[in-house]
Structure formats: C-alpha cells, structure tokens
Amino acid sequence: MVNFVAQIGRVVLAFLEEIGRLSLFTKNAMFAGMLPPFYLRQVFDQLVRIGYNSLPVVGLTAFFTGGVLALQIYIGGSRFNAESVVPSIVSLAITRELGPVLAGLMVAGRVAAAIAAELGTMRVTEQIDALTTLSTNPYRYLVMPRLMAAVITLPILVLIGDIIGVMGSYIVATTSLGFNSGAFIRNMVDFLEVRDVVSGLIKAGVFGFIIALMGCYHGFNSRGGAQGVGRATTNAVVSAAILILAANYALTNILFSE
C-alpha cells in the first residue's frame, strides 16, 4: 500500500517537474525571441518547410474527410427526411472542428517529428552548444523561427483545407447523392457564419504553437545518442497530439460560450 502511494507520488512529482521545465523553456524562447537580432532567413526557411511542404497532406486529408462527411450525413439525414442539411452540416463540421483538428494532427505527425529529430540531433552532436559559443542564442536562432512559422502557417493551411474539404463534399454530393449544384452552394452560404471559419483559424494558430513548441522542447532536451533522439521524436508527436485535442476542447468552450 505504502509502495503504491509512493509510486503515485513519484509519477505526480515527475509530471510537475516536466511542467516546470516546459514553462521555463517557453519563457526562455519567448524572452529571447522578442529581442533582436531576428533571423528572417530562418523564419522563411521554416515557412516553406512547415507550411508549404504540409500542403499535400492537409489537402488530401481534407478532401477525403469532406467526401466521407457528405456520405454519412446524407445517410443520417435521410432517416429524418432531412437530406438537405448536408451542405450546412458539412461546412460547419469542417470549419469549426475537423479542419483545424485533423490538419493539426496531421501536421503534428509531420512537423513535430521533423523538428524534434533535427534539434535532437543538433543537441546530441553538440551543435546547439556550438551555436552559443558562436554568440548566437539558440532559442532565438532555432526555436523562435519555428514557433513563428508554425503559428503563421497553420491557419493558412486550415483555410485551404476548409476550402478543399467543402469541395470534396460538393463533388460527392453533386455526383453521387443527386444534389443540385446551385442549391448546395446556396444552402451552405446561407448557414455558414464568419465566426465559424474564424474560430477554426484561431484554433489552428494555437495548434501551430503547440506543434512547434513540442518539437523544439523535446528536441532540445534529448540526450543519449540515436536512441534518445528517437524517444524525443515519439514524445514530441504524442504530446503534441494530446495537447491539440485537449486545447481543442478548451478553445471550443471559450469560443462558443455565449
């Protein structure tokens, strides 16, 4: 019994320690990143790597999700003779929830892993120490550009994903569910509000921050050679995914509380 309690105590302590370390890391990154010099070349590099290179993944995910939503909602709706809700429900679901969350999760798999592996390798080969000895703050040079790029690009990716997702549902609805093209668009435009889209984009910005932060944090703290870098990569993806889902719940509560 005592053993069991001690075990729980240890887990709780380790958890609190991790939160403390993460807070310190975030503080360091923000403080250092706010001061010049700004490494615009690095930011641009990361915009391409995080944003542009994620387009295919996000686009394909959105397209198929939009299509499958149209099918399912049509089937569900037909049980109440309410097939006409397909356009409005699909667009609501995509812009509010599935667009940002699925894009966030897909980009977490791609980008958090890549960042953690790159920075982790730089850590274990002492390249991060070398930066410091060359009068370059590694938080400013490595972390801030990735945070900025992710926060900027995720909303753009999600907006593009929203459009592609709706297109996917439009194609399915008009080709195999017998929808009239004009009616589909009119129904969707009538029901969709600006804040549905904007709330999704706000979520996307937060998810971008989480993705880059988890990648950088686990990469910076990796040690112990190749195995350590592998562990950092896994931890970065898993923690980013969980934090995205938790943050999504919290944000939905905040954004849609009347």
Binding site: P37, Y39, T133, L134, S135, T136, Y141
Partner: peptide, 8 residues
C-alpha cells in the same frame, strides 16, 4: 558563422 550571425 560567428562573424555573420554573432557579429553581424
């Protein structure tokens, strides 16, 4: 590197 990034 130190000259370009560190010392501008």
């Amino acid at each position: 590197f130190g000259l370009i990034q560190g010392q501008k």
